[in-house]
Each structure stands twice: as C-alpha cells, then as structure tokens.
Nucleic acid binder design. Structure first.
Lengths: 225, 225
DNA sequence: TACGACTCTACAGAATTTCTACAGTTTTCC
DNA sequence: GGAAAACTGTAGAAATTCTGTAGAGTCGTA
C-alpha cells in the first residue's frame, strides 16, 4: 500500500510519513520536482500527497504529467495558499481531493484512506476486479459471496495480477514477486505455469470468468477482453 | 529495442540479460572494455547498462568516448562502490541514471524503461501517430478506443515505425531492431515482408488508414502522404 | 519423531500461437 | 518490356504455453 509524499518541508513530510506509517502505509518521500517526477514515472502508488509549491516546478505540472501518461494514482493536493484557485485548478487537473495547510494529521490520513477506498478498495482491505474480491486482511479470495481456498502462492499471484490489472506483466516480474530474488530460475517457468493453471481452475470452478489472459511472448494480463 | 549490458561478472550479466529479455528487450552482453567499445561503435542501442569497473579500462572512459562520438544511446551506470564519486562523475560525464549494486532486477528494468522513455518519447508512456496509439506500459496498440492484438514482432515493428515517424528506415535497420544481431538474414527480407503485411492487415481491419509507406529501394516510412 | 495432509516444483508430452521460408503474383522503375 | 523489388497466401518449423502426473518439500499435530 504505497503512498508518495511530495513535500519539500522536511518537518512536515516527516510527521506525515510517521503518522501514515503507523496507519500501515508504506511511505516514500520526494522533496523536489525532479525526484518526484522520477518516482512517479518509475512506480505506481495508491495515493500521492502533493504539495503545490515545489522547488523546481509546479505541482500542477506534475499532476498534468501524471494524467498525460494515463497513470491512475490517486492524488491529494495540499497547499499553503488557502486560495480557491489552487483548489479549482487542482481538481480540474484531475486531483481527487484537496486539503489546505495547516491541517490535522488524522484528517489527512482519513482523506488518503478515502481516496484509496474510492480508487480500488471498498473499505475493509478488500481489493477487487470485477466480481473477484481479495481480502488483504485475512488473505482470502471471494467470488459471488463464496470463499475460494487459495494457497499462498496462488494468493500472491492473484494479488499481483489485480494490483497490475490491464497491464502486461512479464513472467520474470511475476516470478520475482512471488518467489523473491532468491529464485534461481534456471530458465524455466514451469512452476509458474502450474500455479497459473491451478489458480485459473479454482477461479473457474467458482463461476468466475478467466480474466487471466496469456499474452504470447510477453507475459500475462488481467483484463476483461 | 536493443540493450547492451557491459558487465564482466557473468552471473550478474546473465540474470540481467534474462530478466530484460523477458521484458521484451533484445539484450547483448560485452564483458570487456574492448568488446564493449567495438559493439558501441558498430551498433546503436536504446540503452547501455554500464558497469564502472571493467577489465581493460574504466567504464567512465567508455562513457566519454560515447559522448565524443555524439552517440545518443541512453546510459545507466551500475557500480559496486556506493560512493558518491562514481555517481557524480558518471552523471557529469553524461550518464542518464545511476544504480548501485546490489539492486533489485525490477528496479533496474524500470529505470531502463524510464531512460528509453525519456530519450525517445519525451518521457511519455503513450506515443501516437494520428489515430494510432501505443501504450508502452501495458504494451497495447489502440485505434479509435479499440485495442488491437499484436504479436511481439508486430508490436516491436509498430513501435519502431512510430518512433521514427516521417523518416525512411531501411530494412536492415528494421531487421536489426526487431531481431538483434543474431539474425542470419541470408540476404532475404521475406520474414519482414510477412510481418509488415500482417501488421498492415490488422491496422486496416481496425479502420486505420495504411500509414506504412513502402519506399522503393530504400525501405519504409510511416507518414501521412 | 513420525505421520498425514497439503503445497510446491520438475518433467514430459500435447496444444496453441507465432515465425519464417517458399513459390507465385503484382508493382515499380528505367 | 524487362529486371528488380515488394507483396501475398500457405505450410511447415519453431517457440511458447498448457496439462496431468509424480516426487520433493513443508507444516502442523499427535
């Protein structure tokens, strides 16, 4: 559950960071325009907390860049100026919410949680794709109110698929993700084929269409069509 | 999408190579200063992954040579020393990014992709030509909101065309780009004709005009008229 | 420690998709 | 018109993915 805090005032970013970390978010901080751009282009975040006034460039520019690249990260703008302008421009540029400084950390946290909930979760640690539900809390998968028993690897696999939905992910990326970097691999992805086969089977048995598409020569993709 | 890995430790270059190959890059490895110099002078690469510590010469020297020859290949430096020196000198000498060992392969891959995006596509994840859209992130081609299923070679081909739009590109350049240097070629471009035919067919079926012009005796060109 | 149940991975052969060589046809250029 | 270049459909080759099975590994419990 990664959150990026784009804020140059170290005191503030530190306290946000600590507060959100306690709420079980994985926080990263970027304190300049350039590092922020880099992080955004490299990784996906569930939510980006964006200070409009940045050294090196405007936060709004950053927001536009995000949208230009079809990134779906949630964005919460924080801005010192309490002007209506920032709010209007920010929301118009595609931000999800706005909070003006100074603010109370619990309120920030609540808004971040709300954004994430709206984006992909429906409240209680449940991440979904179509009728497919994954409960991160007790690590169960649910389709049509029916619990599917998944092994640990199958669960990891499905989680990785859902959090990268509609994107082609390579087999090596999947292998890294579900086995860590101590995988010796020896050139064969047989174990992956097996897990995917079993996962597909269990999902199909629960009446869930096969959303896991094989993309020949590239990898896999979780998508509708 | 060719990438050159300059690294003498075979274990490392092997795993980088395999990981990137699975991400659909065409990888070549150079394990000494001299072979690296030779490859660089012979071919163009989208990105060069450069280990600073090389047998036979410093990677920084190689970097300078690259710039001296006005080569525009992207460069990602990897170095065992976690010293600021390597990073500073490297970036000053014209490298695009720096990663210190040990690193996580997905991170390397993300950075390579980012360098290529910055170099060739202005940092955008989506590159377009008229109604034709190519999304580098999820590796899809879209025409009029409709996804076109492309094979790996067709995708590579289209990517190469779009990133060289309005320029005539020779068949040998195309062949090298989509097959790497291990292509035997034997003087015949039959396979290329086939791929281009199939690509054209798929694009036409999606209602996209045939922007792929054949330039008799020269090669091909993606253009309007 | 031993047992059973469950999970993971390796293997081999089948099925599928993509690639490319070939032969014949059409187009282009001079 | 003739030669070279480009195009097309086809079929076999090659690469990739899928499947079932079996043995190895893991974990909890008695």
């Amino acid at each position: 559950m990664k959150v990026l805090i784009i804020e140059d005032e170290k005191n503030l970013s530190d306290s946000i960071c600590q507060y959100l970390a306690d709420e079980n978010f994985l926080c990263e901080v970027a304190d300049t325009f350039d590092t922020a751009m880099e992080k955004i282009s490299l990784y996906d975040y569930m939510c980006i907390i964006l200070d409009i006034n940045l050294p090196g460039g405007s936060g709004l520019e950053l927001l536009k860049e995000l949208k230009r690249n079809n990134k779906n990260d949630g964005v919460l703008i924080i801005s010192a100026r309490n002007s209506l302008d920032d709010k209007v421009y920010g929301l118009k540029a595609g931000a999800d919410d706005y909070l003006s400084k100074p603010f109370y950390l619990p309120e920030l946290s609540a808004r971040v949680a709300a954004i994430i909930r709206r984006k992909s979760f429906n409240g209680n640690n449940i991440i979904t794709f179509e009728e497919l539900q994954l409960n991160l809390g007790d690590k169960t998968a649910i389709v049509n109110d029916q619990v599917i028993d998944l092994t640990r690897k199958e669960y990891d696999l499905l989680l990785y698929f859902i959090s990268n939905k509609n994107k082609v992910i390579s087999k090596s990326a999947i292998a890294e993700h579900i086995c860590g970097d101590e995988m010796d691999l020896s050139g064969s992805y047989d174990f992956l084929y097996s897990h995917i086969k079993n996962l597909r089977k269990k999902l199909l048995q629960s009446g869930c269409p096969d959303y896991i598409r094989s993309v020949y020569g590239m990898g896999y993709k979780l998508s509708l069509s």
